[in-house]
Computed example of a mutant assay.
Amino acid sequence: MNDIKDMCKSLRLAYVAEIYHSIPFENKDQYLRNLFEKEFELREEAKADRLLKKAKFLYSKELDTYQWGDHVHFPPHLEKDELLSLQFIDRYENVILTGAPGTGKTHLATGLGRHACRKGYEVRFYRVSDLVDQLEKTWQEGKLQSFRNRFKKVNLIILDEMGYIPFSKDGAELLFQLISDWYEQKSMIITSNLEFSQWNRIFTDTRLTAALVDRVIHHAHVLSFTGDSFRVRNALSKRP
C-alpha cells in the first residue's frame, strides 16, 4: 500500500491510492476510465472547496434555495438562464442588484458567487463598508498597492450593501481607485438599496460619483427588486 501511495504521489494523483480498491471492475478499460473520472471529480470538489474558503462569503446561501418570483425584474436583454450560466464573468460584465432591503439581493449575489466558485472562478465577497475600512487601513499603513495586487487573479468581486453607510472622502476615493482597477478587467456583482441617482449620498463628491457610476454600469445588467422584505413577511406570518 505504501508503494502505491508513493507512486501516486510521484505521479501527482491525489486520490487514486485511496479509491482504487472501491472502483468496480468489469474490464481494464472500464476500470481505468472510472478510476480516473473519480480522481478528476474529487480534484474538482477540492478545488471548489478551496475557492469557497478564499471567497470569504458571509453567508452560505445557495441558488437552489433562492425564491424566484415576480419581485425580480430582469433587463430586456438578459434571461434568467443566461445569468445562471455566468457568461457575464467571461465577458467582464457587471450585475447590479437594486431594491429595498430584504428582497433577496444578497441571497442571489451569494448564490451566484458560490456557483461561480464551483465552476472554477476565483471570487471575493465583501460587505462594502468592511472593504472601505480595509482600504483605509492599508493606505494608512502604506500597504495599499499590496492590497490592490490581491485581486490580480480574481475573476468576480461581490460588493454587498452599497449605500447603507456613507464613506469618508478618503474612503470614497480609495474605493473608486479599486473599482477603476477592475473596470473591463473583472466582473462585479453589486447589491444596493439605492438607485444610481442616489449614490451621491455615499460618495459625497459629485464628479467622483458620476465617474464611478459610469464605470459600474458601462457593461452591466441591472436587476431591480420590488416588494416587501422577506424577513418582515416571515416575522408577520409567525404571529398568532
Rank of each mutant, 00 (worst) to 15 (best):
T65E: 13
I189W: 01
R239F: 07
E37L: 12
P75D: 03
T191H: 01
I4Q: 07
K61S: 11
V232Q: 11
K80L: 04
Q145H: 08
S237Y: 09
R12N: 15
D133M: 04
L178S: 05
H107A: 12
V213M: 09
S237C: 05
I179K: 00
P166G: 10
H221F: 10
A116D: 09
E195N: 13
L84A: 01
R124W: 08
S187Q: 00
Q134S: 14
K9V: 07
N27Q: 03
C8N: 11
S237G: 09
S10M: 14
G113F: 13
M1V: 12
K153W: 02
A17G: 12
E18H: 09
S129G: 05
F203D: 06
L11C: 12
A109C: 11
V216P: 00
T206S: 14
D205I: 03
K152V: 12
H115S: 15
H77P: 01
S229A: 12
A220V: 06
A210L: 07
K152F: 05
A116G: 05
T110G: 03
R43W: 05
Q87Y: 04
R231S: 13
Q87A: 06
S197H: 09
H221I: 01
K169V: 13
S237P: 01
S146C: 03
N27D: 15
H115I: 01
S146W: 08
S10P: 00
